[in-house]
Nucleic acid binder design. Structure first.
Lengths: 233, 233
DNA sequence: TCGAAAATGTTCGTCTCGGTTAATTATATA
DNA sequence: TATATAATTAACCGAGACGAACATTTTCGA
C-alpha cells in the first residue's frame, strides 16, 4: 500500500501492492525523526507522530531502530555526519593562516545558520548532559576533525609569526563556536525580548563580520593589525 | 505529618501533627521544580518526581500552581527575578566606559557560571521557541534593564571618543551574552568531546580574560589599543 | 518453483503520567 | 465554642504512549 521510494519511478514500484525498499524507509524515518526531535526534544517527541509523518508505519521504526532512544542516537549521528560532509569541503590548508581563519569563521557562522535542526539537537543533548553523544564514537571522531583544522591554522600562524604564541587552538574553537552557536540557539529568547532586528540578513552579515574581527583580532600579535573585514556594504 | 518550614524553628511548628505554612510550601515546590525542570526539561520532568522531592504532595502543586505549564512559568519568573537581584548591585555608571565594560563582561561571565540552572531554563525556553517567556512581562523588563546598562556604556564611550562610532549596543550585548552563555550551556557536549580542560578554574579565568579582550577590542577605536587584561596569573 | 528470511501490516497490552475527586485536618473569626 | 474556609491527604481515573505479539506479504537464493 505504500509508495516508499522517491528516487525510483512509479512504474518500477507499483507492479504489485507494495515494494520493499529498506534503505529509503530508513532514510525517510530518519528525516522525519530529525525534525520531530529537533522540534519537541527527546521526551517531547511522540513515536506515533513520527510514524504519521512518515510514509511507513510505527512498526518499521521499531523494526529498524529498536526503540526511541536508539532512534534518537542515530538521528544525532546522522546529523553530525551530514555536518561533517560540509566541513570537509573547506580547503583551508592551501590558504595563509589569517585568511584560513577568516574563512573558517565565516563558514562556521553560516553553517550553524543553515542547520538549525543540528543546533537544536545539540542543545537537547546538552540538556541531557550529553548522555547519548557520550556513547557515539562516530561523533567523537567528527569533532576531532573539526579541532584539527583549527590546530593546523594555529600552528601555521605561529610559524609565520603573525599569531601570538599563547594562542590555544581549543580556546579558539570555543571562541568561534560560542558565537556561531548562540546566534542560532538563543534566537528565540533574544529576539522575543529585543526584537528580531539582528536576524534580518543585513544585520546577520554585520554580526558575522563582528565575529570574524573579534576572533581574528584575538589571535593576532598586537603590532600587526589587519584591515578589518567589511563591516557593512 | 509534614515539617514544611526551614526558616522557623521546630518549636514554632510542631506543636501539633503538622502546621500550615503556605508560603514555605510554595517556595519549597518552586525550589524543587526549578531543579527538576533544569535537569530534565519541560516534557521530561515528572510532576510526581517533583512532589517526591518536595516536603508536600502532588496535590499541593496543582493546588498552588494549576498545572505543569503554570508551574514552569512561575519557575521561570522566579529564576529571572532572583538573577535580577544580583545584577542590580553592579555600579557601572561611576566607572569610565572602558572599565565599566570590562567589569560588565566579567560580571556577566561569572554570573552565568554561578547560575547554571538559569542558563538551562533559558535553553529550554529556546527549545520551546520562547513560548512561555513571551507571556511574562517581568522577564521582559529584566532583560531591558540589562541592555540599558550596555547602552549607557556605549553612549559614554562614544562621547569620550574611545569607542568607535558604529558600535551597536544590541550587538554588543549579543556579543557578551553569546560567550558567557555558551560557556555554561554547551559545557556537556563540548567537554564530552574535547575533555573538560577548559573548565578547570585557571582556564576559566583565561577564557574570561579572552572574552574581555575580544569584547573590549571590538568596540575600541583601532588607534587606541588598551593594555590587554591579564591573561593568566 | 519452493521455502526461508526479510520486510511490512495489524492489533493489543500495559504502564506511565498529568490531572481530579472526595474526604480530612487546621485556622480564623464571630 | 462553633462554623466557615483554607490547606492537606490519599486514592483514583482516563488518555495516550511505548513497545510487543502475531499475521501477512515480498524477495531471493537453492
Amino acid at each position: 500500500m505504500q509508495k516508499i521510494d522517491e528516487t525510483q519511478t512509479d512504474s518500477q514500484l507499483n507492479r504489485s501492492r507494495w515494494k520493499q525498499n529498506p534503505d529509503a524507509v530508513r532514510r525517510d524515518i530518519l528525516r522525519v525523526a530529525t525534525q520531530e526531535f529537533a522540534a519537541h526534544g527527546l521526551s517531547g517527541t511522540r513515536m506515533a507522530n513520527i510514524a504519521a509523518k512518515t510514509k511507513t508505519s510505527k512498526r518499521m521504526i521499531y523494526y529498524y531502530f529498536g526503540d526511541k532512544e536508539g532512534l534518537y542516537g542515530q538521528v544525532l549521528e546522522a546529523l553530525y555526519a551530514a555536518v561533517r560532509q560540509g566541513e570537509d569541503q573547506l580547503d583551508l590548508a592551501m590558504l595563509p593562516p589569517v585568511e584560513a581563519l577568516q574563512k573558517l569563521v565565516v563558514f562556521t557562522f553560516d553553517h550553524h545558520c543553515q542547520h538549525p535542526d543540528f543546533v537544536r539537537l545539540v542543545m537537547i543533548e546538552n540538556i541531557h548532559h550529553a548522555k547519548y553523544l557520550r556513547t557515539s564514537e562516530i561523533i567523537r571522531q567528527l569533532n576531532k576533525s573539526a579541532i584539527e583544522k583549527v590546530q593546523d591554522i594555529c600552528r601555521r600562524g605561529q610559524q609565520d609569526g603573525v599569531f601570538r604564541d599563547d594562542v590555544d587552538a581549543l580556546k579558539l574553537h570555543w571562541h568561534i563556536s560560542s558565537m556561531a552557536f548562540f546566534n542560532v540557539s538563543n534566537r528565540p529568547t533574544f529576539s522575543e525580548v529585543f526584537g528580531d532586528r539582528l536576524w534580518i540578513s543585513e544585520e546577520q552579515e554585520n554580526l558575522r563580520a563582528l565575529v570574524v574581527d573579534a576572533v581574528v583580532g584575538s589571535v593576532l600579535k598586537s603590532n600587526a593589525k589587519l584591515p578589518t573585514a567589511k563591516k557593512s556594504k
